[in-house]
Nucleic acid binder design. Structure first.
Length: 224
DNA sequence: CGCCAGGGCCTCA
DNA sequence: TGAGGCCATGGC
């Protein structure tokens, strides 16, 4: 039986609390967010699609500097001008359209749930779950390439496992607690950056004592 | 210089 | 329903 809580505890003991969502140190980790803060998290979730957070930060700073980091300004701005302002996040012509589509969704007053979010052009499963978890405190575990990489190496799943299937493993292996999911995903991202990189740094990894990848590829070499 | 970064959509079997 | 192509910038 795979113990998702054990992995969480090991990561938490090693890295400590991460204080996500990491937009702004003044309110990262806050549980009660105002409308503007929630909107900013949604924006970040779209902008960080296949993109490093450092690039997204540049964009958010640029938007704030131009005093348009709010829904009212972004609703009115020309889409091509928006694309220019978010250039540092990459895929800017797609993402400007995604932001416009997302604002149109918010303006429609439909319920903000997973099904409706997935109907919005540009919002897939990870972005939807990030929005639900980090902006709306809903217990959806966020699956990303880091999650697949770490947990397939640990031996919990196949590397190419379907999004919903891996999410189901987390949902059935943990209490459905949004604070836990929030912290856990943040720890996964940190761990993937520090040790479980594409080319992993296994020797001093805090999880290597029960990692299948480590057992198969490292232990023999070290103990020879 | 090449690689990679907290995806998602479209197309084509 | 799954693989492959496409989108784009910046750090290292």
């Amino acid at each position: 039986m795979k113990d998702f809580l054990l992995v969480y505890n090991k990561l938490y003991n090693y890295y400590g609390a991460q204080g996500w969502w990491p937009i702004n140190k003044n309110y990262s980790g806050k549980l009660r967010l105002n409308y503007g803060e929630k909107f900013e998290i949604c924006l970040g979730a779209i902008l960080t699609q296949n993109t490093s957070w450092t690039n997204v930060e540049k964009t958010l700073i640029n938007l704030r500097k131009n005093n348009i980091l709010n829904i009212n300004k972004l609703r009115l701005i020309d889409i091509n001008k928006l694309a220019e302002l978010i250039k540092s996040s990459g895929y800017n012509n797609q993402k400007s359209k995604k932001i416009k589509q997302f604002i149109k969704f918010l303006d429609s007053d439909k319920e903000i749930n997973r099904e409706n979010l997935l109907d919005v052009w540009g919002i897939g499963k990870e972005t939807a779950d990030s929005i639900l978890l980090y902006a709306y405190n809903k217990p959806y575990f966020v699956i990303d390439t880091y999650t697949r990489r770490i947990f397939s190496r640990l031996g919990f799943c196949d590397e190419k496992i379907d999004y919903d299937k891996l999410q189901d493993l987390f949902h059935s292996g943990l209490d459905k607690n949004f604070i836990l999911f929030n912290e856990y995903h943040a720890l996964v991202v940190e761990h993937a950056k520090v040790f479980c990189r594409k080319t992993p740094v296994c020797s001093s990894c805090p999880l290597n004592d029960f990692c299948e990848y480590y057992k198969d590829n490292c232990e023999r070499l070290i103990n020879k």
